[in-house]
Design a protein around this nucleic acid. Structure first.
Lengths: 254, 254
DNA sequence: CGTAGCTTTGAAGATTTTCAACCTTAGTGG
DNA sequence: CCACTAAGGTTGAAAATCTTCAAAGCTACG
């Protein structure tokens, strides 16, 4: 036990610097000593292999998880036995936020490839947040960000043709890779066409066909899991963007 | 000023008891004096009329809002000028949680009918949360609940035929009315077919047709905005429910 | 090298949207 | 009090989109 702690204390800091730290702290700085206090509660486990579960629907909620490297999918299963992909989680992104609510995971999470994870015991995170106002603020922002992100996803699933959905999906991946320092135009999909389809509510064949079409149109180069975006502008042009400015058409009440 | 405060102090408590209180406090009790401290920051404005804005996309975020009576829709506008309904908010439900993230509202909110609202200044709520651990916990739960709720919505939009979507929509309304003490089987829709369609990503005609069909099948009685659910069981049977138990089919990794 | 698991592609079928017309209700003003 | 209008709702038919079913190709792994 003691030994494990000694070993992990160093590792923890390293782990924290590149995952929980960037997620929880960077957006609005904590004081260095507060960062250390946060570091101290982070746990880092051995990497997950492709197909390993991070948690399962119905399990008790204890930790938030931050993806360090690799990729994770979250999903539910319907009473008809098939899987519904709820989300894909890339490095720097947090899982488990939906489970705070009732202390139980509402979906399962599995590694799509070899994946390193940081573990944040939620009860300790709450204690810490009580004592560090700026951490509390970060936590609120983190949760809020997740809400915004899902609202965006809904808007995407909401107003979209298959073309728009696949385009949005690729743009989303591109932006998320970019934010974490990877190439925005050349990356590998860690998920199958099936999983993409489940996520976007499209048949896997439709996803495949769209990839092919985008390639024919010179927008992409796709070779199985390897995607290169050749014309990001045209891809962007396919999706309907929400504006922040409300247009004034006759207001029913005034 | 002084007079306004005197007047509002009483009103506030009443307002709080039936909106922010039930949302923020009831799920896991705060101590009575803490409830009073929460009460003290709640503001209550004059009711909104149908069509009035509660906030607009792009505005600075200052407050969370709790619907006391009535109904509110949130929506964005696309660069093509049409409106995308993001959510409907019934009594007891909270708006604005997505805006904590970057201090700016990402969608607009408008009253669908005459609506009373409680206003919670977020900065004061944060201060209070720092000092009242159980309130902080409630806030985390509240945010998490919103995430879960949106994940559910995504799952709904995700794996659904038009029939499932409309059925789920009605079930959702039914449950939310029930939770707040209204009839679960007899209610008025405060939104138009157009708005329902926008929310569910269906043409308004499709929504209308489904209502008609459900009525022909004896599941509903619909007369414009007035809906009666005659066979909730059959309605439930239409939607694919997520299970909490993950089925074991061949695990790709083991 | 063979098999299993993705992926791609084609063609038929189902669902949903679009366009258009018509109906109903509530509100307005003659 | 009634006709008129505007907004929302319903209904039908054609067109577009997406799914399903089926078959075949490709890769990776043992």
């Amino acid at each position: 036990m003691a030994q494990k702690n000694v070993i992990s204390l160093d590792k923890i800091k390293v782990a924290c610097r590149d995952c929980s730290l960037s997620t929880l702290c960077l957006p609005m700085g904590l004081r260095p000593d507060d960062v250390d206090r946060l570091d101290a509660i982070v746990k880092r486990n051995r990497p997950l292999q492709r197909g390993d579960h991070l948690f399962r629907a119905g399990e008790a909620f204890r930790n938030l998880y931050v993806v360090k490297t690799g990729a994770v999918k979250t999903f539910t299963q319907t009473n008809e036995g098939d899987e519904q992909v709820v989300g894909f989680h890339l490095p720097g992104e947090v899982l488990g936020l939906d489970a705070i609510q009732d202390g139980q995971h509402g979906c399962s999470a599995r590694a799509l490839e070899t994946t390193a994870i940081c573990e944040l015991p939620f009860d300790r995170l709450e204690d810490l947040s009580s004592n560090i106002p700026s951490l509390q603020h970060q936590m609120f922002r983190l949760l809020s960000k997740e809400i915004s992100h899902e609202a965006e996803m809904m808007a995407l699933l909401g107003r979209s043709t298959a073309e728009e959905r696949v385009a949005s999906f690729l743009i989303s991946l591109s932006e998320r890779f970019k934010r974490r320092g990877f190439s925005a135009t050349d990356f590998f999909l860690s998920m199958s066409r099936q999983e993409i389809g489940s996520y976007l509510d499209l048949a896997l064949e439709t996803v495949s066909r769209l990839f092919t079409r985008f390639q024919d149109e010179g927008i992409l180069k796709v070779e199985r899991k390897h995607v290169q975006i050749l014309d990001l502008e045209r891809l962007n042009g396919m999706v309907v963007h929400p504006t922040n400015v409300e247009r004034h058409h006759a207001n029913p009440s005034t």
